[in-house]
């Protein structure tokens, strides 16, 4: 969908998409991410998306807003 924001969970060493749990300040506190690394934001609040955005703006944090190489 054009214009829709996408967040990914990436391995901090390789930059490739990876499964895991994203810590969020409100429920779901541990958002499960599948092996393709795509973070499902459809049910997240604006505040939680802000939280993802702050993580993505941190170079050393595994949450990323740019599309990982392996997905392109």
């Amino acid at each position: 969908m054009a214009g829709k924001r996408r967040f990914y969970l990436c391995d901090p060493d390789t930059g490739k998409p990876v499964a895991g749990l994203v810590g969020l300040a409100s429920r779901p506190n541990n958002l499960e991410v599948k092996a393709n690394g795509v973070i499902d934001i459809d049910k997240l609040t604006a505040q939680q998306i802000d939280e993802l955005e702050r993580m993505a703006a941190t170079p050393s944090h595994p949450v990323s807003e740019s599309e990982p190489e392996a997905i392109k």
Binding site: L9, C10, V18, G20, L21, G23, A25, S26, H61, P62
Partner: peptide, 23 residues
């Protein structure tokens, strides 16, 4: 704080990356 840990990796090693939360 609460929900400060983001876990990556499907197997060993798993990485626990922390971001400070207000709660």
């Amino acid at each position: 704080g609460t929900s400060s840990d983001t876990v990556t990796g499907a197997g060993d090693p798993r990485t626990h990356t922390f971001a400070r939360k207000d709660v």
